[in-house]
């Protein structure tokens, strides 16, 4: 669970890095080249399956743990307690469900279109590439989708805020010297990564880039 989660976070970084290329003012060339590299490099293609496995493991474990946890308390309290130490941790399965929904929509919108559908092409100095950048730009003109993306990414922030530092605890990496740093890092990641992703639809929607 924890390992898969950390692994997925590394993927987020890669994804974010490439996405941010969209904001480069070159008509999407750099982004399209990067997207093409990701879609064609055999190593990356192989790694794609590892990534899928990571998602599946993370989800299956998450669901198993959650079901066990629900079973562990068959009759609930009248007054529910709370933990003031880690507020987001109580809603991991809920945030997870929203993120999963987002993921499905996200894959349908981009990944499957690129993989199985047909999208426009661009020509860079004789090299014909699929115009992923164009696709993104087109999609993010829709208000509803942009709002949903921003919402989902805020939810992702909550998920990450607990998830990142929690993974360290689950792996047994708790140390009075380093844990405070991990917690700060967790907050930073939870804010910066979703913020980076959010920046893209906003910029495109408001035509800032």
């Amino acid at each position: 669970m924890a390992l898969a989660g950390l692994f997925l976070i590394t993927f987020l970084f890669v994804h974010l890095g490439i996405n941010l290329l969209l904001l480069v003012d070159d008509g999407g060339e750099l982004f399209n080249r990067a997207a093409h590299f990701m879609a064609s490099n055999p190593l990356i293609q192989l790694f794609q399956w590892v990534l899928f496995a990571g998602f599946i493991i993370h989800m299956i474990y998450g669901i198993i743990l959650q079901v066990q946890n629900w079973l562990a308390r068959p009759s609930r309290y009248k007054v529910e307690g709370y933990s003031h130490l880690s507020p987001f941790s109580k809603f991991m399965i809920h945030t997870a469900a929203i993120i999963l929904l987002f993921l499905v929509i996200h894959l349908v919108n981009f990944f499957f279109k690129a993989k199985f559908g047909h999208i426009g092409e661009v020509n860079y100095e004789g090299m014909v590439l699929e115009d992923m950048g164009g696709l993104v730009r087109a999609q993010f003109q829709e208000t509803g989708l942009v709002v949903f993306y921003i919402f989902a990414l805020i939810i992702l922030a909550f998920h990450l805020h607990h998830g990142f530092q929690s993974a360290f605890q689950s792996m047994g990496w708790n140390h009075s010297r380093y844990t405070p740093f991990v917690k700060i890092l967790s907050t930073l990641i939870a804010i910066l990564v979703p913020l980076g992703f959010i920046a893209i639809p906003i910029c495109i929607y408001f035509n800032l880039a």
């Binding site: 743990l65 946890n69 562990a72 933990s83 003031h84 130490l85 941790s89 991991m92 929690s166 689950s170």
Partner: peptide, 12 residues
Amino acid sequence: FGNCTNTYACEA
């Protein structure tokens, strides 16, 4: 017993 999801209510 359930699993630990590092909510830390126990410590509190």
